[in-house]
Design a protein around this nucleic acid. Structure first.
Length: 557
RNA sequence: GUCUCAGUAGCUCAGCUGGAUAGAGCAAUGCCCUUCUAAGGCAUCGGUCGCAGGUUCGAAUCCUGCCUGGGACGCCA
């Protein structure tokens, strides 16, 4: 309640011996205690009175048109707002601002680069990449709503020793026809086979390293195979991005930086930061951090080398005010090192780089590993969710138009929402059943609330002017939540945490469903026009919330 | 071993910039479709907030130690 809180702060400041801020006003845990509350405990010392007495004095003295009444209760002043005044003003605001409700311009057009998705070529798109894609996309939408200009970069993993492994495996055991038939699946099998054999025969790893070195040095046969693998992979990834509705501003992957790493190595050398260690070149770091490897003993580059190059390139290309990397928890150390190295190079903007870590997707309590073939394929999961939504539609709403599109919106929505609703740092135990769920705190639940709201609006026909006379508890609960939307957006953007939006959307859907179940909107009552306006506002806020999560809002389902 | 993240109801989680009786969803049980989409609503059941100290008028929330689990820890990314 940003504006309500602000107003209340101004009203209350004269009574307080301390400067008040928004954090000191809270929402009571139970609705019967009031709409907003001021705990008076912090004032006791300065005023040398008991919090109970202070609360009573304030409650008796406060007088404002927005405040219906103020009650003192065990050290708190509980405020009951003038419901009809607040409601009328809020509904007009939301209807007037429509989808821009909750938007701000505090980003001032500054560029925020977001490194997201970043699947590895020749490997299937796993559930792990889903997290990065979905979280990164939602953050892009969030910062955009706050006036920044997001640049989504899909930093494709198309370089590195893994390609040496793949090239080696393909030359030993692969054939062209099989790869053509089922590219990713076949390449994955080769990759897995390589690791099985390498456990028994360590010389394979040496071969792989040599093969990658050859690729990096421009060997034409290696290069041709690599191009082919990459093309096939990108085709497969695109199908998934289309399904998820995610687009990118750049697909510059690691290979893009292959011939651009010279300058950074020179810069590191000039600044005296490179040190030789066991034949490799490293940058030593303080604070007990392990050194950052820049060049392997065979002269080949590493992840960190390319990341540094990419960071410098992005700074000159985009001049970002913030650069975000949506990459798993397990790479935290790498990002700490990488930022430190940039700092040591004298780039003050290294402070604008931020790792957005997220928890692993676990299977039986353990990390899934591509190398051992322990992965879950995202495309299969998505298709299953869509099929499930489709069959639900057939039983519940068989006459629905565009069943296919709606089923896709719901199935994909269920998957996206199940990921975004929990705090991103938590590890997630992979559970297909819970991702496919459509009841309770799920994406389809929120979408359903919105569809019901639209159904009411359709039946009502055109909107009319309204006046608010009385606001019942069901309506008031919805109004109070709608009022918090800008605050939820702000908190989510401050913490770059879309789960705040997801939880907020569930709250709105719950309060709306409760209202819907208990209050008849379409009726002869003179409250109908005001209730319709409320329902309309619910759809505006729900749709905007879902949009910020990267989800669609079908009007019928 | 070092660093790091986590431990809240049977399960999955919210609350963690300290504030009132710790909240949801799932599961279980019982109601509600001759009122706007039952992917819904209403109700019941369910908790030593990992353990032990400390700070505070007040701690799930902050500090310290311990226990348990995940992850990372130079030539992978």
């Amino acid at each position: 309640m940003l504006t309500l809180k602000k107003t209340l702060l101004e009203v209350l400041q004269p009574f307080s011996p301390l400067p008040l801020d928004g954090n000191m006003i809270e929402r009571p845990v139970h609705a019967h205690l009031g709409d907003l509350a001021l705990p008076c405990f912090p004032f006791a010392k300065a005023l040398r009175k008991s919090p109970i007495a202070i609360a009573e004095e304030i409650a008796a003295a406060v007088d404002h048109p927005l405040i219906h009444r103020a009650e003192a209760q065990s050290g708190y002043v509980n405020f009951f707002l003038e419901r009809s005044v607040v409601t009328a003003s809020l509904l007009h605001t939301i209807l007037g601002q429509s989808s821009t409700y909750g938007s701000s311009d505090r980003g001032n057009g500054g560029v925020v680069t977001i490194d997201l998705s970043s699947p590895n070529i020749a490997k299937p798109f796993s559930m792990g990449h889903l997290r990065s894609t979905v979280i990164g996309n939602a953050i892009a939408l969030l910062v955009e709503k706050c006036g920044y200009k997001p640049v989504k970069i899909n930093y494709i993993g198309d370089w590195g020793t893994q390609f040496g492994k793949l090239l080696t495996a393909y030359r030993k055991w692969g054939n062209e026809a099989e790869v053509k038939k089922a590219p990713i699946a076949t390449l994955l099998q080769l990759y897995i086979r390589f690791h099985e054999k390498a456990e028994l025969d360590a010389t394979l790893n040496d071969e792989a390293r040599a093969a990658f070195k050859a690729l990096e040095d421009g060997d034409s046969s290696a290069r041709a195979l690599w191009e082919w693998f990459k093309m096939e992979s990108l085709k497969e990834f695109q199908r998934i991005y289309d399904l998820l509705g995610v687009t990118f501003d750049s697909y510059n992957g690691e290979a893009y930086y292959n011939d651009k790493m010279g300058p950074i190595i020179e810069e590191l050398t000039e600044k005296g930061l490179l040190v030789e260690s066991d034949g490799a070149l490293v940058v030593e770091l303080e604070d007990g951090l392990p050194p950052c490897l820049i060049k392997k003993s065979d002269g080949a580059t590493l992840y960190a080398t390319r990341d540094l190059t990419a960071a410098l390139d992005r700074k000159t290309t985009y001049d970002f005010v913030k650069s975000l990397y949506v990459v798993g928890n397990e790479q935290s150390l790498h990002f700490t090192q990488f930022k430190k190295v940039l700092g040591k190079m004298g780039h003050a903007w290294s402070a604008d780089i931020q790792h957005i870590p997220f928890g692993l997707l676990l299977k039986d309590g353990k990390k899934m590993s591509t190398r051992k073939g322990k992965i879950v394929l995202l495309e299969e999961v998505l298709n299953e969710a869509i099929a499930l939504a489709q069959s639900t539609i057939e039983t519940k709403n068989p006459d629905l138009a565009n069943k296919k599109d709606v089923a896709q919106a719901i199935g994909v929505g269920a998957i996206i929402f199940s990921d975004l609703k929990q705090h991103r740092r938590h590890d997630i135990e992979f559970n297909l059943a819970s991702m496919l769920q459509t009841e309770g705190e799920t994406g389809p639940y929120v979408q359903y609330a919105n569809a019901r709201a639209h159904s009411v609006l359709r039946k009502a026909g055109s909107m009319r002017a309204f006046t608010v006379s009385e606001v019942n508890d069901f309506e008031w609960a919805v109004v109070k939540l709608l009022e918090q939307f800008p605050d939820a957006v702000k908190r989510a953007a401050d913490e770059l945490d879309s789960s705040i939006i997801a939880k907020y959307a569930v709250d709105v859907a719950q309060s709306f469903n409760s209202f819907y179940g208990n209050v008849q909107v379409l009726s002869d009552s003179e409250d109908q026009s005001y209730r319709l306006a409320l329902v309309h506002c619910v759809t505006i806020v729900l749709e905007e919330s879902l949009r910020l999560l990267g989800m669609k809002s079908p009007r019928e389902m």
